[in-house]
Each structure stands twice: as C-alpha cells, then as structure tokens.
C-alpha cells in the first residue's frame, strides 16, 4: 500500500484515497489549430514513461483536488508532492533535501 502525501490536506494517507492521473506538466497546445499531426501525436500519445523519478498527477478523492508528485517508478517511493500549478521542481533540488 502506497502512502501518499496530499499537499492540500497536509496529510499522508493510503493509496486507496487517491487516483492516478498520468504524467504531469504536459501543456495543452496554445493554438490547437496550428498543431501538426506530429505535435498532436506527441501531446496525446507520447509519454516519458520514466524508469526512475517520474513527474505525475494524482487526485485526492477526499478533497477532490489534483496535485503533482515526483515518484521513483523503480522503488515506487514518493520523493515529493506539490500543488498543481507550481513549477516543476528539479531533481537536484530534491536530492539536496
């Protein structure tokens, strides 16, 4: 059972209270009609699928809010969670903590 920290509730809760919502920091196209087929492919389908630290979105069912997490996909350990809209933290910052 994963224990996940909700940055809004500031509480660490079991996995059952959360739903996974895919890779984080994938920006919607600013001008969709100008997007080429390749850009649509990259936006819709191509994923980093990182083996190691992975930026991803989760939703806390309790408070209903989406947030971002940095999780190691080899150990499944959460390195950190942060609120949606915050800039992507770099790995070096995380390593320093």
């Amino acid at each position: 059972m994963l224990l996940i920290h909700c940055p809004y509730c500031e509480d660490t809760l079991p996995e059952l209270e959360f739903t996974y919502a895919g890779e984080a920091h994938i920006a919607r196209p600013a001008d969709p009609s100008a997007f080429s087929d390749e850009e649509w492919r990259d936006f819709l389908f191509i994923r980093t699928n990182a083996r190691g630290p992975h930026y991803e979105r989760w939703r806390h069912i309790g408070c209903g809010r989406f947030f971002n997490a940095l999780r190691d996909t080899v150990s499944d350990r959460f390195l950190m969670t942060y609120k949606a809209g915050e800039a992507r933290p770099t790995l070096t910052q995380e390593a320093a903590e």
């Binding site: 059972m1 996995e15 059952l16 739903t19 996974y20 699928n49 996909t73 080899v74 150990s75 499944d76």
Partner: peptide
Amino acid sequence: DQYTSYSQRGGMP
C-alpha cells in the same frame, strides 16, 4: 495497478 511502475510488484489493494 493504476500507476506506472517498473517495480514488478504492484500493490495489495
């Protein structure tokens, strides 16, 4: 499982 992983384990839920 709901989340991506390379752990070859998965969760108990």
